[in-house]
Simulated scan of single mutants.
Amino acid sequence: MLNIRAIFNIPPILLSALVTHAYAYPDGIINDAKGASRPTYATILTGGEGCSSSGLDSIRAGFSEMITLFASAVPFDFISQPSIEFFGPSILANYTDMIASNLQRAANYGVLEGGEGPVNADVHVRCDDPMGICEVANKREGSHAAYNIGNDPHVVFCENYFKTDGLEKRVDKKAENQMDKDCLMEYYNRATVWARMVMHFSDIGRAVVQRAVPAGPNSTADWTMSVSQGAMNTSVLAGVMNERPDAPSDPETLKYAYGITQSKLLAVLSTQMSYHAANNAENYALFALAQYIVQRKGFYPAVPIMDFPNEASVLTNENIQDGERTKYAYFDMVDVVYVCLIRAEVAVR
Rank of each mutant, 00 (worst) to 15 (best):
P248T: 03
A329D: 02
E113L: 15
V136T: 15
M232W: 04
E186F: 01
D152M: 03
G259C: 05
L315I: 06
N138K: 06
S64E: 12
M185H: 06
R325P: 07
A221L: 10
C340V: 10
V119C: 04
A6M: 10
T46N: 00
F308L: 09
H144W: 14
T271E: 15
V236S: 11
I13V: 07
E345C: 04
A36L: 05
A329S: 10
N102S: 03
K264S: 06
E318I: 09
N9K: 11
I4Y: 04
V314D: 12
V74Q: 02
E345H: 09
F78N: 08
N94G: 04
A17P: 03
D246N: 05
R170A: 09
K181W: 01
F331R: 07
A93H: 03
I320Q: 13
N148H: 03
F157M: 06
A329Q: 04
E318F: 02
P118M: 08
M131I: 09
S72P: 00
K297N: 15
T234N: 11
N120I: 00
A212E: 08
F331N: 05
F157H: 08
S228L: 07
E168R: 04
V346D: 02
I305E: 13
V227I: 10
L45T: 06
Q295M: 01
A175S: 15
V193S: 01
I10V: 15
M241Y: 05
F86P: 11
N319D: 12
M66A: 08
A215K: 05
C340S: 14
I320M: 08
E49W: 08
G110N: 10
E113H: 10
D332C: 11
V294N: 04
N9G: 07
I10H: 02
A93N: 12
P245I: 02
F86K: 08
S263C: 14
E186P: 05
K163Q: 12
H200P: 03
A145H: 03
A17Q: 13
Q178S: 03
